[in-house]
């Protein structure tokens, strides 16, 4: 039986009878939260105003989330009967970005369109994603990147865990699943700890955990047949007052870097090195 067929059967299970039948089948579902992030390496700055030019800036799957997706796919490769679905909130059409996720190996993508709401902060984002996870139904794991490429807040995963009252393990750099338990290794500042919990659980992963695969042409072609489900906020019965931002960005400006920018040149390497050494000694930054 192909995976695809099995998956359709299982969905029928869910819609007809939630919960009980799920436990009979060993299917595990992993939800991977994917942020469509601004590609920060391609951002331009207006030199006069120090404002970032974000309109039209290229977007991509946030790097850390890609590691989360890769990990989910690896889990599916190890265990039988795992379904990997992605979950994205976006105010624009993220389909081109999600095609990449599907090409990497996700089975299905869910998108919540929040175009009707301006300025969603981490609190609102987590609320929407948590409600979407509830609507997806039974799941065993939610995987998120430890933080996001563009805003670098690193709050959304933990906020979702709190809203869904899930056990959470953050900064995971290695994980394994055995039965209903997930065991994960976390890197802290001075030590690493291995933590175990019962699924369903939410884990946030670091970039160390794996090297995300680059999809082959075959996988890219297969992905075009996979389903992308789009929901509106109304589909999730989102309460607007709960989406109200709790923080406000007053300004975001390119940092001023005032450096001397002295180019050191010379006829020979030795001459250059000596000039540089002299400058550093004069600055008082070498020696004690």
């Amino acid at each position: 039986m192909s995976r695809q067929t099995f998956y359709i059967l299982t969905v029928t299970f869910y819609s007809s009878n939630q919960g009980n039948l799920f436990e009979l089948s060993d299917l595990k579902r992993i939800i991977v939260c994917l942020k469509q992030a601004v590609d920060v390496t391609q951002l331009k700055v207006d030199v006069a105003t120090r404002q970032l030019i974000t309109t039209g800036a290229p977007k991509k799957i946030s790097d850390f989330d890609k590691n989360a997706l890769e990990e989910a796919i690896r889990i599916r490769e190890k265990l039988a009967d795992v379904e990997v679905v992605t979950l994205t909130m976006s105010s624009e059409d993220p389909k081109t970005v999600l095609r990449e996720a599907l090409a990497m190996g996700a089975d299905k993508a869910y998108v919540v369109n929040n175009a009707e709401v301006e300025n969603t902060d981490t609190s609102g984002t987590a609320y929407v994603l948590a409600e979407a996870a509830r609507k997806i139904g039974q799941f065993d794991l939610i995987l998120c990147g430890e933080t996001s490429l563009d805003s670098f807040s690193g709050l959304v995963g933990s906020r979702i865990a709190e809203l869904l009252k899930l056990p959470q393990i953050t900064s995971v750099r290695k994980l394994s699943i055995e039965g209903d338990n997930v065991t994960a290794e976390r890197a802290l500042e001075d030590e690493s700890e291995t933590v175990k919990t019962k699924m369903p659980a939410l884990l946030t992963v670091t970039r160390e955990i794996n090297q995300p695969r680059i999809p082959s042409l075959m996988m890219i072609m297969k992905a075009s047949k996979k389903e992308i489900v789009t929901w509106t906020l109304a589909d999730l019965q989102i309460q607007r007052e709960k989406l109200a931002p709790k923080i406000e960005v007053i300004e975001a400006l390119a940092p001023k870097m005032e450096r001397k920018k002295v180019k050191i040149t010379g006829e020979t390497v030795q001459e250059v090195a000596e000039k540089l050494a002299k400058a550093l000694i004069q600055e008082g930054v070498v020696g004690r």
Binding site: V40, L43, L52, K246, I250, A252, A254
Partner: peptide
């Protein structure tokens, strides 16, 4: 924020 491209000033509501 923005991968080092900007410094954001953020206030609370």
């Amino acid at each position: 924020t923005y991968g080092g491209n900007a410094i954001a000033r953020v206030a609370f509501i």
